[in-house]
Design a protein around this nucleic acid. Structure first.
Lengths: 138, 138
DNA sequence: GGCTTGACTTGGACAAAGTCCAGGATAGGA
DNA sequence: TCCTATCCTGGACTTTGTCCAAGTCAAGCC
């Protein structure tokens, strides 16, 4: 965790209380929070932190590659701190719960040149959808 | 195309000018439009059509399985009329252009039971990201 | 063709998620 | 300690989408 702060400092980040709090929130559990949830948790640690700052900080973490933006089909983007180990997502269509998964195989290799239309393909995102055990019970 | 209207009538749809226009817009080019773009094109054919109706109609088409909702990481959902042939998407990270693609392999089979966490998995969505030839030039 | 009726549409208000900005605060170097 | 570029704040604004009461109209029935 403080690795993260170190890395960021190394990249010229000015270390403010607000940024530290946002980083802590993300590193806390290994979860997939929305920006608003991050804000709510950050406020618990630093009451005056503003929404704008949370959005800015998340945006910076994403563009530095420290955090992934996940857009399931829910309304809000979610932020995934597990950026350094490639993985995909399994989403419950009912409650929106998200789990990280590691499928076998390499989807990148499954897209032949003839299907690339001249694009320079750099990334694949695989989202499995289904119903989680909890929702299946109900 | 009029197949679609036929199918919908068969399912008890009341055939209104508005619904016809929305269906025509989607069937026009084979594109991936946002709700607002659909609305804009619909207005060109039927000036009084309201946003609410476009949203309603798109929602109905989706739940009837005639149209797919695609959430790339862009802000707005897009609507894909190509619902009857399974396919995935290739998205330009710069301009947002979307192409339908047909990878080889079966990503569904690549998720072992041990990685399903008790979920009943019913669907996979694969999104390739990259840069399209147009944006690569610029 | 003319009624009837329940489904459809409308426009505007509302909500959620996110962006932008001017002005004030502060981290970190000199 | 002081300076200054960077960062934060709060609020206004935008975009995307939903909801609702009231009016309209497609389709079946005569």
């Amino acid at each position: 965790m403080s690795d993260l702060l170190e890395r960021l400092r190394g990249r010229g980040w000015r270390m403010t209380a607000q940024r530290r709090v946002v980083a802590e929130v993300l590193a806390g559990d290994h979860v997939h929070l929305t920006a608003d949830e991050v804000h709510a948790r950050a406020v618990a640690k630093l009451p005056e932190i503003s929404r704008a700052t949370v959005y800015n900080t998340l945006g910076e973490l994403v563009s530095l590659g420290e955090v992934l933006e996940v857009s399931t089909d829910k309304r809000a983007k979610r932020y995934d701190p597990n950026a350094h180990r490639p993985h995909h997502h399994l989403v419950c269509a009912q409650c929106g719960a998200i789990r990280d998964v590691h499928p076998t195989g390499n989807p990148m290799a499954d897209l032949p040149d003839s299907e690339r239309f001249g694009f320079t393909v750099s990334d694949v995102e695989v989202t499995y959808r289904g119903v989680c055990p909890n929702c299946a019970k109900a």
